[in-house]
Nucleic acid binder design. Sequence first.
DNA 1: AAGCAAATTGACAGCGCTGTCATTTCTGCC
DNA 2: GGCAGAAATGACAGCGCTGTCAATTTGCTT
Lengths: 337, 337
Amino acid sequence: MRVRLEDVARAAGVSPKTVSRVLNDEANVTDATRERVRAAMEAMDYRPHPSARSLAGNRSFLVAMLYDNNDNPASTYLAEIQDGVLEACDAHRYSMMVRPLRMRDGDFIRRLDALISDHHPDGVVLTPPITDYTPLLKRLRERNVPYASVSPLRHGKTIGVMMDEQRAARAITEHLLELGHRRIAHVIGIANHGASRWRLAGYREAMVAAGIPEDPALVVQGAFTFGSGVEAARQLFSLAERPTAVFAANDDMATGVMWAAGEYGLKVPHDLSVCGFDDTPLSRQLWPALTTIQQPSREMGRLAAEQLLSMLRGHGPAKLVQVPFSLQIRGSTAAAP
Amino acid sequence: MRVRLEDVARAAGVSPKTVSRVLNDEANVTDATRERVRAAMEAMDYRPHPSARSLAGNRSFLVAMLYDNNDNPASTYLAEIQDGVLEACDAHRYSMMVRPLRMRDGDFIRRLDALISDHHPDGVVLTPPITDYTPLLKRLRERNVPYASVSPLRHGKTIGVMMDEQRAARAITEHLLELGHRRIAHVIGIANHGASRWRLAGYREAMVAAGIPEDPALVVQGAFTFGSGVEAARQLFSLAERPTAVFAANDDMATGVMWAAGEYGLKVPHDLSVCGFDDTPLSRQLWPALTTIQQPSREMGRLAAEQLLSMLRGHGPAKLVQVPFSLQIRGSTAAAP
DNA sequence: AAGCAAATTGACAGCGCTGTCATTTCTGCC
DNA sequence: GGCAGAAATGACAGCGCTGTCAATTTGCTT
């Protein structure tokens, strides 16, 4: 038989309401009472019934994680964020549900409404690129559902987590410059994604600072996929004056660049330096291993959820926390030929 | 203000209980009444409150998907299954929660217990490799939680979904044999995973049928990762008598094999044919594209959940459904040199 | 047309919690 | 020591549904 709050109350010699107060960390309970109740809960292995809690308390203890599984970045990235969000939710005894939302499909606002009406999440975690989709943000505000974002494009009053991607991109470009490279190409990610913009901006910033005029032929469009990296690289390698280094906006594209280098008989890193962004597991498995920027995706998911939860629980003002990046220098970059 | 069941009842001129019956597709409601109630629900955009439903009805309308994020196969595989499970749950208005369970950690039974006590899932979907972990299955039965499995190792009374992986592996090996290959190597996946066993068995079956004696040097251990594929291939390419074809137990390892081929100056498919298993997005992006077995992961997730739900809803006996595979012949395999 | 079983519908309590507000118990202070 | 005000605790209703069982209606027989 299930242990109920009432049973705990009887065991601890207090009223059910007091047990409820302890359960919810409310004020106005003496330490002695609190301790007694805690002990009773522990002893009886009491587990509050989430449905009863949410029915009576008018909150769901549910966080929904929204992602776009159409236009999405690498699925390992999302999987890691998901793990992080889950960890934070678990820690605070919230449950989490995941929700794919295809923004290209027209009905996503209806699907969002259905999610809210059907499940009443207390809050929502947004992942790129839907962190930046204005109609969606608007609807969430209208419906009064708090949200936290992972790597949002705008940093206004948004809460969540971000990394200084522009500075990271600048750092990795500077690494190439220090190795003596001058003709450094950049492969852009999907247009309009914040990640693409920042990384391009960081690349440009470093080049300008080094006094190298921009060569438009060296900046080519990709789409975050391996295949788009291959395409972009073929374009670059067909140039009369080839680049000696390529900075791709993510690891998948960088891998594509390395693949294409093989096709053109270019040895990495001897003839061509390549670097990426994200530090996916793949990047370490390549040979040579890929120089890249480590982005702590799992941790970012955790922190975003943590901010959301601290807001939901009224623990002071939540903010947009910044996580550090780290430049992982590996075998794919070397001195310019 | 929220529309409640009572409001619908008033609008339809029936008792709340009757609306409840319609909501739950129960018997003993005349078609006329049912229709009237349905119309009222529709008109008022009624959404039942899940917590109230589960509190009163003693069921949660929740399905948990369990996976091992430690020892896991490619995360895209899990992501696809997750999408499929979600689709099925949505269709039947169940909610879904995901649950990583690291079987290498000792506390996974405790974590499973916590999941059950905290969230009361009505059922559980198991993904490889935890489909086969006996203590876990035992605990689920003890706790009386129904489950469905994706690609379970044992096919006893388990419900869920499977593919005839052995026959698929045999088919792809036969494809290599038809191309004239005799020295065909196999890279095994993580030991004990059902996938590894079946694929090895299918390979052997085809070789035996073709009358080719097994050369133990051609069967090497891998671990489903790109890196392990590279390692395995290096081992194979160092052999005095190299294989002319390699069948790797999944696409990631096959990609590793192709990578290593580049290191050894072997042109795929001219000098070496390579094939994989899974038909991951990556396999199409490679050049040459990878010959592989298409496994409908998303569909498998959906079907497994569908079986579970039909069992939960008492819609006849659920079973272990089988999905077809399809051999995707692409550029990475060609006639033996 | 009466009579009976089966089908349909409804009344009501209660699932396990929390919100509201009343009550009791502590403080500090003159 | 007595009193006001704050802090701690408790009583009780009710969140939105469903299970149980009783009441009513329907369909069928004879």
